[in-house]
Simulated assay, not measured.
Amino acid sequence: MPVIRASVVQTCTAAYSLPDTLNKLHRLAKLAKERDGSQLAVFPEAFIGGYPRHSTFGAVIGSRSPEGRDEFLRYHQAAIEIPSPAITQVEAIARETELFLIVGVIERDGGTLFCTAVFIDPKSGYVAKHRKLMPTASERLVWGLGDSSTLSVVEGTFLAGDVTTKAKLSSCICWENYMPLLRTHYYSKGVQIWCAPTVDSRPVWQSTMTHIALEGRCFVLSACQFAQQKDFPPDHSVPLNCPRDPESVMIGGGSVIIDPLGQVLAGPLREGEGVLTADLDLDEIIRGKFDLDCVGHYARPDIFQLSVTGN
């Protein structure tokens, strides 16, 4: 029975401070390893670099303000490059904890930022990244669009005593999960563990995660941020008609782990930061594909075909 012990980490950026955020990553990765015995841990969307919820960056159609440009400068400075000393630190954390890490970051590439997830192997270090293909709504103001060059499905090797287990992992960030053809691409690559870093804390998000687990007959690990006003810089925007209150919730969590038949194994977590852990029995994937393999016996390739540019 090939089993991987996996965690989703519900946390948030520390007020755009890279050193403080990396310290949180270290502390929570150690918790997942030492308390729960995890081999894999998924951190939320934009964990390193921050998700600028409620920010407008001083922009309306046809006009940008100097204050908004200053805010973008601060946000740009909080982002990281790949590779970089920050990635080296994440590699060191993965190596120390013996955890395969998937971490949401804001990636800086020249003057453009990308919402990215990095794959960090405890032995090999950084092995791949995925850039969010389609930022949602106002996110497009500050994030560039990814392309087909980072649609990675990565094979991870997981050790537990004398037992070695291999599994194929993907990352699909927030509302990318609503892109049917992207899902089909990952299914066609044989994804077994579907990692969904997100900031979508709506209850309906759970329906999306359950659907993907059922549709793809894969394990779904959704790691969402939980953030309060105190987790942002003091002058960060807050919702309209919302008083400034350090304890007020800005992003409400909802991290969850779901199996290939849609059963919730852990979560959803709502009350603050934390780590959820579950055992992933990879044989459950094949048991599920007995009656549904959406890129195999249920695909009808005589009628439908998928073409992915550059792949």
Rank of each mutant, 00 (worst) to 15 (best):
V9H: 05
H54D: 15
D200G: 03
A6I: 09
P268D: 09
G288A: 11
L101D: 04
K33Q: 14
V249C: 07
A78E: 11
A167V: 08
Q228M: 11
G62Y: 08
P234C: 13
A137P: 09
P19M: 10
V199I: 15
L151D: 08
S237T: 08
S152G: 13
S201W: 13
P83R: 00
I87L: 14
R64W: 05
G216M: 13
V163P: 06
W205M: 08
A278T: 01
G37H: 05
D291W: 01
V60E: 15
C242H: 08
P233T: 14
L18G: 00
I80D: 07
T150G: 08
G267I: 07
G104Q: 08
G62P: 13
S201P: 02
F100V: 00
G272A: 14
G156H: 11
V256N: 09
G267L: 14
A41T: 12
T277W: 10
Q263L: 12
L169F: 15
A46Y: 12
A227V: 04
G296I: 12
I285V: 01
V154R: 01
R217Y: 06
V118H: 01
P44V: 06
P260S: 06
V154M: 01
A6E: 10
F100D: 00
H54E: 15
S248Q: 11
S138I: 13
R244D: 06
W205D: 02
A94I: 03
E71Y: 01
D36K: 14
E81D: 04
R270L: 14
S201Q: 02
Y16I: 07
G288L: 06
T112P: 02
R300I: 10
I193Q: 07
G58D: 02
L221G: 12
I80W: 11
D36Y: 13
D245P: 11
E215T: 05
G288F: 02
G253N: 03
Y298Q: 11
R5W: 03
Q39D: 10
I61Y: 06
E81P: 02
A6V: 15
P233C: 03
S124C: 09
Q225N: 11
K33D: 05
Q89M: 02
L282R: 03
H130N: 14
R27V: 05
V127Y: 10
T112M: 09
V153Q: 07
L280D: 06
A78D: 02
G296A: 09
Q225S: 15
H185W: 13
R270C: 04
A59H: 11
H236R: 03
V9C: 08
C12K: 03
G252F: 09
I4Y: 08
G110Q: 12
E271Q: 10
D293Q: 07
Q305C: 15
Q225P: 02
G254N: 10
L99G: 03
Q263F: 07
V60H: 07
D291A: 05
T11L: 09
V204Y: 00
E96D: 06
Y75V: 01
G252V: 09
D109T: 00
S55I: 01
Q10N: 13
T13W: 10
P246M: 03
T277C: 15
T88A: 07
D245G: 10
R287C: 14
